[in-house]
């Protein structure tokens, strides 16, 4: 009887471990928007990586700064060379977790509101951030979306006086990632 109990305990553990899936994408979409009365600027990338650990809600994002595409080539140049110094700081990352992971059931289809917090690194400067996100569970796929704001000055990015009215002090960032189970 004891043996059966131990065996069934082990089975439960194994079943739980195999369910503890990692979710992943290499084609996460990140956009940012700088709106001022003088000028609206936006840039997009569709090549961000994101991984979410289904066992504990930890997540990581990484994006190459040079992958952001602007409508105007000159703006893209200035963004990379003058503001983000992307040769020196080629990547931006986020490392954090879903704080209310207990109320997100990845095994059940539905739309969940998630609180995400962690460390955001831009331009070599790391700051604590938190935001709301929506996770849509559809079968074994997770559709994640979030919008948050970043103050340019917080990350040591200096905007020259000549264009200070053209570039917003607070930039809106939109993230969309369709995560799929990582094949192991």
């Amino acid at each position: 009887m004891k043996r059966v109990l131990i065996l069934s305990c082990m089975l439960v553990i194994i079943a739980h471990a195999s369910f503890a899936q990692k979710y992943f994408t290499k084609t996460g979409q990140i956009s940012f928007y700088s709106d001022t009365p003088l000028e609206k600027i936006e840039a997009h990338t569709k090549s961000a990586t994101c991984v979410l650990d289904g066992s504990n809600g930890k997540m990581e994002f990484a994006v190459l700064i040079k992958s952001f595409q602007f409508e105007k080539a000159l703006m893209q140049e200035h963004f990379n060379e003058n503001y983000m110094e992307s040769n020196k700081f080629p990547k931006s990352t986020f490392k954090g977790q879903i704080d209310n992971f207990n109320s997100v059931d990845l095994s059940k289809n539905g739309r969940y509101n998630a609180k995400v917090s962690g460390q955001l690194t831009i331009h070599g400067v790391t700051k604590d951030v938190s935001t709301d996100a929506i996770i849509q569970v559809q079968g074994d796929k997770l559709d994640c979306q979030s919008t948050f704001e970043v103050a340019v000055a917080d990350y040591g990015i200096t905007i020259p006086a000549v264009v200070k009215d053209n570039i917003a002090k607070v930039v809106k960032i939109k993230v969309m990632a369709n995560l799929e189970p990582l094949k192991q």
């Binding site: 090549s47 990586t49 992958s67």
Partner: peptide
């Protein structure tokens, strides 16, 4: 394409 660096893979854009 234009080389933008490496995450897990080396990335080319445009």
């Amino acid at each position: 394409g234009i080389c933008t660096g490496k995450l897990m893979d080396v990335n080319l854009s445009r």
